[in-house]
Simulated assay, not measured.
Amino acid sequence: MKSITLVRHGKSSWEFDVSDALRPLKKRGINDAKMVANQYVKSVKLPEVIYSSPAVRAFSTCKIFLEIFNLSEESVSVKEDLYDFGGESVIHFIKRLPNNYDSVMLFGHNHAFTSIANIFGDKFIDNLPTSGLIKINFDISDWKDFKQGTTEFIIIPKELKA
């Protein structure tokens, strides 16, 4: 049994004249990521390994989760393959994960994460919102066999505010 937790980066700011990869989080993005991380940590045990896109907004979101998890930045590996908006690079990355890891958390981007959640999970979502998280379990023993799985849960910031 393997599991993937996908976390879309927090709400980012467009007010700075920087490249896409350098866009920072807005205050709302920081607050939403903290809420989701706190909810996640109540629900399940921590993943065995964490990977993040190198984009500032994704890695900043990841660092918020690390703080809540009480882990250091050395606990995360930054991977260029996760700076992907279509999903093909992320799927290829997942299929190459080391088999000694059963539970993996990825920080990245849309449309890739919504697409992967809908292709490989069993609950359709219109859109994984910023700071949204989805955990999918797979009945496989080798990541190269990555296929349809079962969506365990979805955490949406807006639903936590209700």
Rank of each mutant, 00 (worst) to 15 (best):
N110W: 08
L46K: 15
E80C: 12
T114P: 03
I30V: 13
V36H: 00
L82W: 05
R28C: 04
D32C: 00
Y101L: 12
S89A: 14
G108F: 03
F65S: 04
F93M: 13
H9D: 07
V76W: 08
S103K: 13
R57L: 03
S72Q: 08
Y101G: 11
E74Q: 11
S19F: 10
I30C: 04
W14Q: 07
I119M: 14
E80K: 15
C62F: 05
L25T: 00
S12K: 01
F107V: 06
L82G: 09
N31S: 14
D32A: 00
D126N: 15
S19W: 07
V104L: 12
K34G: 02
K11P: 02
G108P: 11
V78S: 11
S53I: 01
G132D: 00
G29F: 00
E15K: 10
S52V: 03
G108E: 08
N70Q: 13
D17Y: 08
T61N: 03
S89K: 15
V49A: 14
E88V: 13
N38E: 13
P54D: 08
L66H: 04
G10Q: 00
K123N: 10
H111D: 15
N31C: 07
S52T: 11
N99D: 15
F124T: 13
F107E: 01
K63W: 01
I64A: 08
V18R: 06
F120Y: 12
S72F: 00
S52M: 05
S77A: 15
S12Q: 03
L97C: 13
K34H: 11
L66E: 04
C62M: 10
V56R: 07
Y51E: 11
I91K: 12
V56F: 07
R57P: 00
S12N: 02
A37N: 03
I91Y: 10
I125S: 01
V78D: 05
I91C: 10
N118V: 07
K42A: 09
G86I: 15
A21V: 11
K123M: 09
S72N: 10
F16C: 11
S77R: 15
L22R: 12
N99G: 07
V76N: 08
